[in-house]
Write a protein that binds this DNA or RNA. Structure first.
Length: 264
DNA sequence: TGAGTATGTTCAG
DNA sequence: TGAACCTACTCAT
């Protein structure tokens, strides 16, 4: 589901499947129908991602997608199956089908509008050339907690509620630490870990944060595509490291999970 | 059948 | 700060 790793994964798959070829575009649900007609039978040139925003480039027109909380793509080998009535956008060629359901945003924009969107976002750690100094600047000048700042897309783009909880646990950091009280070393550790974890997650679109040595035998048996966490959604369960019960609280209206023993 | 929940964002008050 | 929005799924009634 949608944090930065998912969007990067989706950009990669769409580019691999559709770039350089004519694409059939339709909007079974109807809300994107007018725009779908404009890109129908056009060639997708490439796909790109910044944070949680996906851009599918059809020459000048660009499809801008933000999945929001529960939007998703169903990616399949070319199918004759009818899309569900809620499918906002279907992209298809002879080999592949991409169905988009429930996005917060699906619109046709210009390159200029795309730049306006990305200009409002902080550096995306998954990008090779991401500006770490800009990210440090955004964090270190704020009195807000690091838990709050990591979710702020204008500070750092692409991190969501799962990666936030897991990054803070892995760094053994108090989630309430104000950005302007963090040392550069502490920030660098989180930034580098975010880079690494997002890239690992982007490979197959699954969030992987737990060192296998801390998985139970049952969890190990489940294997590859399963998602496990140190603290996310583990309220009341014992910490994988110290056995203290994981706690849950609310930061900016979102649930935050942490270990009161490890993260001091 | 209906309430609650979900890895998100925006806008009104 | 809280509600609204986009959708599907789980669980209680």
């Amino acid at each position: 589901m949608p944090e930065g790793h998912t969007i990067r994964h989706l950009a990669t798959v769409h580019e691999k499947w559709f770039a350089g070829k004519k694409v059939k575009a339709s909007s079974p649900q109807g809300r994107f129908a007018l725009y779908a007609r404009q890109i129908d039978d056009q060639v997708m040139t490439h796909a790109s991602a910044h944070g949680k925003h996906l851009f599918l480039h059809f020459g000048k027109p660009i499809v801008h997608v933000h999945l929001g909380l529960y939007g998703w793509f169903t990616l399949t080998k070319a199918t004759q199956e009818q899309p569900t009535g809620t499918t906002r956008l279907r992209l298809q060629n002879d080999e592949y089908t991409s169905d988009l359901v429930g996005p917060t945003k699906c619109e046709l924009i210009t390159e200029e509008q795309m730049h306006l969107i990305t200009a409002k976002l902080g550096p995306d750690p998954i990008h090779e050339d991401a500006d770490v100094e800009q990210a440090w600047n955004n964090i270190s000048k704020s009195k807000k907690s690091i838990a709050s700042l990591l979710m702020n897309q204008a500070a750092i783009a692409g991190i969501g509620n799962v990666y936030r909880a897991e990054l803070l646990f892995r760094a053994q950091m108090d989630p309430m630490m104000p950005g302007n009280k963090m040392s550069r070393d502490e920030f660098d550790e989180i930034w580098c870990d975010a880079r690494a974890l997002l890239r690992i997650g982007a490979v197959d679109g699954v969030i992987k944060t737990v060192n296998p040595q801390y998985l139970t035998n049952e969890e190990k048996a489940v294997g590859g595509h399963a998602q496990f966490s140190y603290v996310y959604k583990r309220t009341g369960l014992p910490c994988r490291i110290c056995n203290t019960k994981i706690e849950q609280s609310n930061v900016d209206g979102r649930k935050l999970y942490w270990c009161p023993e490890c993260q001091i």
